[in-house]
């Protein structure tokens, strides 16, 4: 009887939180799934069911394909830049400074993550400016021809990867530092006794032990990078005085379809595709990193 009462109490205590969670998390996902099967212009009361037509059209849509490819390149680019760099920076901060200047380095690295995105992106727009940007000026010192960073189809994607990585790095470093601080010191001492160099200790002790951290950071970085939008919008949007090539990404394409073209159902089908991709990638990451980590 007492056990039953405890169960009822637990359920009643959790119910408000579960209801709120269901309303703000589960219901919108269900609604997106439902809308993706309908044709709706946002304003009309009429929402005809069209089955999978939106998805059929989507996979023949050249803009969507471009957006998908660009987003994937940016997301994996950010992942490839951020994870190794964050791990190395965290290792340097943790091992080399012996916590004396750690707070300074941690803060310096973390500032870009908390800096407001729009002014930061505007600053990067200036850095990448083909004529007046300091990046081309610096390259010029080494005899490199000025590059049209924000206009060249390849370089404009590179510019976005740089901006996104710059922003993501601080968070990843902080999480890795937490990981480093929790690693047992005895393992490093044992490695040292076995004659391991600092690099070998990092490669064969730190990296494997940090796999759970790497899993978390890579999932967060990848999901966040797949949702890239504001960086693209600021670097090369309708800025009429300072032109730039707009790199089409999934969220931008979705917003354009939803609120400029008034095709909510179509945009919802894009959101479903994005959801499936992110879920699949997260599962792959969990499989690759967690299982191998578990076997060790």
């Amino acid at each position: 009887m007492l056990r039953r009462k405890r169960w009822i109490f637990a359920i009643l205590a959790l119910l408000p939180v579960l209801l709120v969670y269901g309303w703000v998390r589960i219901f919108p996902i269900g609604e997106i799934l439902r809308l993706s099967l309908h044709k709706w212009d946002l304003l009309s009361r009429n929402k005809p069911f069209i089955g999978l037509d939106n998805f059929r059209e989507l996979f023949q849509d050249t803009l969507f394909q471009t957006a998908l490819v660009n987003t994937a390149i940016i997301a994996f680019g950010v992942l490839l830049v951020t994870i190794p760099m964050a791990m190395c920076l965290a290792a340097l901060i943790y091992h080399r400074t012996h916590a004396r200047f750690a707070w300074f380095y941690e803060t310096s690295v973390f500032i870009p993550h908390v800096a407001s995105l729009v002014p930061a992106a505007m600053a990067w727009k200036w850095i990448f400016d083909a004529r007046l940007g300091p990046l081309n000026a610096l390259l010029g010192v080494f005899g490199v021809e000025p590059k049209a960073w924000l206009f060249d189809p390849v370089l404009s994607v590179v510019a976005i990867i740089v901006l996104c990585s710059w922003q993501a790095l601080g968070y990843a470093v902080i999480i890795y530092l937490v990981g480093f601080k929790n690693l047992p010191h005895s393992l490093y001492e044992a490695a040292k006794l076995d004659g391991a160099t600092p690099f070998q200790a990092f490669r064969f002790v730190s990296v494997p032990l940090l796999k759970p951290i790497t899993l978390y950071v890579s999932v967060v970085t990848l999901v966040s990078a797949f949702n890239v939008y504001a960086q693209v919008f600021v670097l090369a949007s309708d800025a009429q005085g300072a032109p730039g090539r707009q790199v089409r990404v999934l969220v931008l394409d979705m917003l354009e379809n939803a609120f400029r073209n008034y095709r909510i159902g179509y945009a919802a089908s894009e959101a479903v595709v994005l959801l499936v991709i992110v879920l699949a990638l997260t599962l792959i990451q969990f499989t690759l990193l967690r299982e191998k980590g578990g076997r060790r």
């Binding site: 049209a148 206009f151 005085g241 300072a242 032109p243």
Partner: peptide
Amino acid sequence: VEAPADAE
């Protein structure tokens, strides 16, 4: 393409 443009 990369030249400053428009009213500005």
